[in-house]
């Protein structure tokens, strides 16, 4: 049963991150996802101090606010000071993450959080911390991750066309009356929730890997958005399962093995795409194309 819970945790994180990651990659904001996943740390620590509890709901709210705040700072630095966007991202999230690390280490004795856990997580401990729900004893992390996944899926599904249009052509979306700013902040809030819900179990580094890698791999080999989303989710799930079993065979870090599996899938997709390109640009096909046109 423990194996199952650990794999399920990995899958829940992977699916949430892959869905959001697809939109981040298409919006050329993958690094903003990276930034948010680190910058939420002081938000979590502060909400812990303010409420005195590690109840997930307060952490989600604290992190959600922090995620939007991070996005605001990055945009403000980029627009007002003419600092390049990548530099703005680098400055903002390292500063906020460091602030979070300082807060944790300063209050180390009376806080139930540690820096190692934030970076690497401890997915193997997921089955230990349980909660009673509908008469079932379920790991807390799984309940929280399932809620986040349902939330994300609903928001993406019900507003699918809004996501498509604000991602593909923001000025056009604005011209038909959609608030591109609002949709952007909703996306950033969802990235923040997912990060917080995930990192306790899998750590910030695996969250970043799941946000960027499966979506990028899917992007390489697909030509329509539903397919990109489908393959991103599929690659996320495969990475979790393959990562878990290879970790237990090789006796290595589970999070590390999952991230590595995602990387290997990306390489395979890259090679597939390269082969496909070679076939497409071969002379015989090119002639056929010309006749077609």
């Amino acid at each position: 049963m423990n194996d199952f819970y650990i794999i399920l945790t990995g899958i829940l994180v992977a699916v949430s991150c892959s869905i959001l990651g697809t939109f981040l990659v298409l919006r050329k904001m993958a690094m903003v996802g990276d930034a948010i996943s680190h910058a939420v740390l002081p938000g979590i620590v502060l909400s812990f101090f303010i409420t005195g509890s590690r109840e997930s709901i307060w952490m989600l709210i604290g992190a959600g606010l922090m995620g939007v705040f991070t996005t605001l700072i990055i945009e403000w630095l980029h627009k007002k000071t003419k600092l390049q966007e990548d530099a703005s991202i680098g400055v903002t999230f390292t500063f906020l993450f460091a602030l979070g690390v300082l807060l944790i280490s300063y209050f180390a004795e009376n806080i139930d959080l540690d820096q190692e856990c934030v970076l690497y997580g401890e997915i193997a401990y997921v089955p230990l911390n349980t909660i009673m729900l509908f008469g079932l004893e379920l790991p807390k992390a799984i309940v929280m991750l399932a809620v986040v996944l349902i939330l994300i899926t609903a928001v993406i599904f019900f507003f699918y066309k809004e996501w498509v249009i604000t991602t593909f052509d923001a000025p056009y979306a604005a011209s038909i009356g959609m608030s591109t700013v609002l949709w952007n902040y909703i996306l950033m809030s969802m990235v923040s929730f997912t990060t917080v819900a995930s990192f306790e179990s899998v750590g910030a580094i695996l969250v970043v890997a799941f946000l960027v890698v499966p979506a990028s791999a899917a992007y390489l080999i697909t030509d329509s958005l539903p397919k990109t989303l489908f393959f991103a989710v599929l690659f996320g799930i495969i990475s979790s399962v393959a990562g878990y079993y290879s970790a237990s065979i090789l006796d290595v870090s589970i999070s590390g093995a999952m991230a590595t599996a995602a990387g290997i899938i990306f390489i395979i997709c890259f090679i597939l795409q390269w082969i496909q390109k070679q076939i497409h640009t071969s002379p015989s096909i090119l002639q056929a194309e010309e006749q077609d046109v």
Binding site: V164, I165, F168, D169, Y219, S224
Partner: peptide
């Protein structure tokens, strides 16, 4: 409103029909 063609990323995973359908979103 028809934006400049260069203002969007044409590598976006969408077909010609998908893009035209966006005209119906409003």
């Amino acid at each position: 409103y028809v934006p400049q063609r260069e203002s969007v990323d044409w590598d976006f995973p969408a077909s010609a029909l998908d893009v035209v359908l966006m005209g119906r979103y409003g």
